[in-house]
Design a protein around this nucleic acid. Structure first.
Lengths: 348, 348
DNA sequence: CTGAAAGCGCTTACAG
DNA sequence: CTGAAAGCGCTTACAG
């Protein structure tokens, strides 16, 4: 009767049979001791322990229609997403809220290159995305699945709860600082719009920041069309590549303005590697204020944004939605600030 | 008949009824087009699309007895685990293998402070742990659940597939380098054994490294008992705290030997903050060779270990076990190397 | 306090 | 090619 016991793990049925109680009783023994006698409970638990029974989490979750996990949709392949300190910070914020609620955090890489497929199959109670915009096909998938979701650095729309900073203003502030310090020959490194799908981005973070840059430039009478603009992956390596390109420009700019510290740090490394000095030969400014920004020599002038807190608030909002509690606000805007350090020279 | 359709998402039954086919047919339409006529398939898919039907991943996974996710058991609270660059690297390695196999990566924080509870409930097909040792209660839980598992930086035991470097040798190499450079007054910062449970650790990574340190010291006739030893959390902040303690020692050592770059960097920051110079006033060496190690001034002398690759190999081994494929080797040992940089002075 | 039975939403062996 | 039915391992409303 027990011959195959070793190869298959016992189920609630085995414990019921073996202990002489019903499945109901076994379930209560594990989940609601008030509905069962102490004697029965102990007997059942003892049998369970003897047979090495642990209730199957999947079956339990399935029955209770929940996953006890929320998903973090990685905007890019794992290698990029998880090596980006900004994303790591956001994840830390999300993770600590999951921990508080007793949930796990499921990292969801694009499945067969397809984010849509990944979202269809994700075994989670809710989803946090980075840079999602209205109209993306994954939005309709999440809605069909009746998944709760919150986006960070995406579009603030009626159907899209969001957490952002004022990216346009932040970019404006950064570029203004550069201009106030006397720089007039500037190169911009835009960010590759690591799209969750192929929809045209009308209001992505890079677009918003570009608007801020241009606004500041035009206030100083500088034509956006006169400014050299590169596009970079959000990686240190590509930052290096782009910096080298810029150094070879006919008219070398006095300052490189980036949208990401990791790219800016790539620039600094490449420039130093060429035997040039930051900021004496060329200045570099970044965005995010990751830890590395204050470790590198020279320390990086950048825009600080509260990445951990963004993750945290997005997760809190998501849990509110999952628990059907009202949100204080559907769109959360966090503060940013300029970190004036050494990588930006002044001509004044 | 359709009055409540809007509030509940449709199931396979709804599509069967609405399309006039059976549940079987609907299932085949989605999963195995060879077992159904083209006409039926299109009709079913159309009905599904019309009603906004997406097969429930949980039910599907439950039926197929799989999760399509592997778990990464966080050894400490999220805030510590996810801010540790070494852990981040390991996670990146694991994540990229998950991506390759079409799995998600579930980060599992201790549940109500209890790792055991978290492991009981984890909805995953396999588990990767950091620093797990034989005899821990989670081992028996994983076995009862018949979960596949692999440990990184844990004990290499028959029942414990593992990925490690030779920690004792690596520590020996590092301490030898310090001694070769003429240092004789040395302080060690040991690592707080961020236990997955309260079992006595007889062979944890810190213990193994300590052995290596002591071996080198005694070869130079230095009594381990004469060496000041602090214990630090694996965080930058606690590194700073411990460094300050060491600076106030009656006889200030000429070198601080740590077990982690993040702690070493904390030391350097604290020392510089005190107006002292690394390595002129005091040297610091680390362990891991995280990115920050070569960004900080002075660049950190440290032991390089292939963190990403450790994660990658552990995940590959895990997938082999999950798929019941044979492992090439149950215990994988990776190479380490010394990175000689600027934070260690020489008296020669 | 206790248990028989329906239900969660899928998959699939089996028969036609 | 197609469908009725059993099964995955739990929970829980309901009746006793």
């Amino acid at each position: 009767m027990q011959e195959k016991k070793t190869s298959k793990r016992p189920t609630i049925n085995d414990i019921a049979r073996e202990s002489g109680y019903s499945k109901t009783a076994v379930s209560f023994a594990f989940n609601d001791s008030t509905r069962i006698s102490e004697k029965a409970r102990l007997q059942i638990l003892d049998t369970a322990h003897r047979l090495g029974y642990i209730p199957d989490p999947m079956a339990r979750n399935f029955s209770l229609r929940r996953h006890l996990s929320i998903g973090f949709l990685l905007p890019q392949i794992v290698q990029y997403s998880l090596s980006n300190p900004y994303t790591q910070q956001v994840m830390l914020g999300i993770g600590s809220v999951c921990e508080k609620y007793g949930y796990t955090l499921t990292l969801i890489p694009p499945l067969n290159e397809s984010v849509a497929l990944a979202v269809r199959n994700a075994a989670v109670d809710g989803l946090i995305t980075l840079g999602m915009q209205v109209g993306m096909d994954i939005v309709s998938i999440m809605q069909a699945r009746q998944l709760s979701y919150v986006t960070i650095d995406g579009t603030a729309d009626v159907q899209m709860p969001s957490v952002n900073i004022d990216d346009e203003q932040a970019a404006y502030d950064l570029m203004s600082l550069v201009l106030e310090n006397g720089h007039r020959s500037i190169a911009i490194i835009n960010l590759n719009d690591d799209s969750l799908c192929s929809t045209t981005k009308t209001d992505s973070v890079p677009v918003r920041r570009m608007r801020g840059f241009f606004k500041a430039l035009s206030e100083y009478g500088i034509l956006p069309s006169s400014v050299p603009i590169c596009i970079s992956e959000c990686t240190l390596e590509d930052g290096e590549v782009q910096a080298l390109k810029i150094l070879e420009l006919a008219q070398r700019p006095t300052c490189i303005v980036t949208m990401s510290d990791i790219v800016a740090i790539g620039c600094i490394l490449a420039i130093k590697d060429r035997g040039l000095s930051v900021p004496n030969d060329i200045s570099v400014v970044g965005f995010d204020d990751i830890n590395e920004a204050s470790l590198i020599e020279p320390q990086l002038t950048t825009v600080r944004q509260p990445a951990i807190e963004k993750g945290r608030l997005a997760a809190e909002a998501l849990f509110h939605k999952i628990h059907n509690e009202p949100l204080q606000s559907v769109h959360i805007q966090m503060p940013h600030s300029l970190m004036k350090r050494k990588s930006l020279s002044s001509f004044n």
